[in-house]
Design a protein around this nucleic acid. Sequence first.
DNA 1: TTCCGAATCATCCGTTCGGCTATGGATTGG
DNA 2: CCAATCCATAGCCGAACGGATGATTCGGAA
Lengths: 206, 206
Amino acid sequence: MIRVALVDDHPVVRAGVRALLEGQDDLTVVGEASDAHSAQQLVAALHPDVVLMDLNLGPGAGGAEVTARLRALAEPPYVLVLTTYDTEADIMSAIDAGASGYLLKDAPPEDLFRAIRGTARGETVLAPAVAARLVRRSGPTLTEREVEILGLLATGRSNRDLAKKLYVSEATIKSHLAHIYSKLEVDTRAAAVARAIEQRIIRPVS
Amino acid sequence: MIRVALVDDHPVVRAGVRALLEGQDDLTVVGEASDAHSAQQLVAALHPDVVLMDLNLGPGAGGAEVTARLRALAEPPYVLVLTTYDTEADIMSAIDAGASGYLLKDAPPEDLFRAIRGTARGETVLAPAVAARLVRRSGPTLTEREVEILGLLATGRSNRDLAKKLYVSEATIKSHLAHIYSKLEVDTRAAAVARAIEQRIIRPVS
DNA sequence: TTCCGAATCATCCGTTCGGCTATGGATTGG
DNA sequence: CCAATCCATAGCCGAACGGATGATTCGGAA
């Protein structure tokens, strides 16, 4: 019997996963949490085999940090990320925080079951859409600094503002922008922002 | 007994709502649909009292159109929109497509139950967050054209491109932009895009 | 150790943008 | 019918932007 814990701030989703898992006789939900803090208590108390983790836990700590902390426990559970909309950075940070898999919430139930069982066996499971995104990222890879600048770009700041904010000269900003443009194959800041959002490099909402 | 139909493309959400409603003895789920087409067949066949409608039905027809078509039936069901992320335009179009209410998916189950019961009685139910957004929209109201231009702005096009695309002169574009800037209280196109996305005037993903 | 990428800074130059001000036609609603 | 609103257009001007090019420093990989 695979013991599963749910961490998600949407009651509807929790109820849905629970209902779906109840139909599988080798899977059982041993507990639910809706925020970062109670998630840790839950796991420490119940030692589930697999934690289904949403990355958007509303305000407060993100799912990636929680994942890292859970994986740092004495008997760490496998963590399977189950989410909807996330940036590339989110995915990567979740994975190298120790997540064993990444599923999208619109996945059919069978995929979910398969993923949980695979995760419980220690396998790494990625949703096809996610895997594809990680693979096709073969081409342009933005540096950390460039992503940072993109994020600020999306707030509509001018080059001068960016320079002040990052304590560098305007020339440096323009240099970074030129690199960003060439990597994203655009030639204006607005287009860069749009591309970055579309490709999940940055998130739209602050 | 209030007969409810679910329209949502996420199996997890459907299962969740179904599980939650099963705990209420005056509510019953009579059917589910995951796309626009089957939603109409479902409603025509089962005549539910209330339809819980997601607005993001993946590719294809949006929930607003489906709502309009359901409301145009002989014995139209009440439609309660249950969704997560939507633009102002989405909300408005859903409402004047005949939706009786608008709930966010992270609402606690009790709110969901209350909303369904109220809707079944013909009441109009708005999530506090939604209502607030509609109310505080007292200040700047963008015209249709302005929203259209904002949408194109978010694709990173230049004024000249916009002019060509809309078959107007560049002067006209600049005029619209000036109006947009003043209404959104920004002074660059990138900032306008960011604001528009943040305020749910346009959606980030194409 | 050599080489490369990232980050920083710089200058020049043409293009675009944004602010300002103003006008006219069309539609809608008191 | 007249006011209001939306849409469209125009010119001017300074500021900001984007392209091209090149240089330096620093750290890690080969």
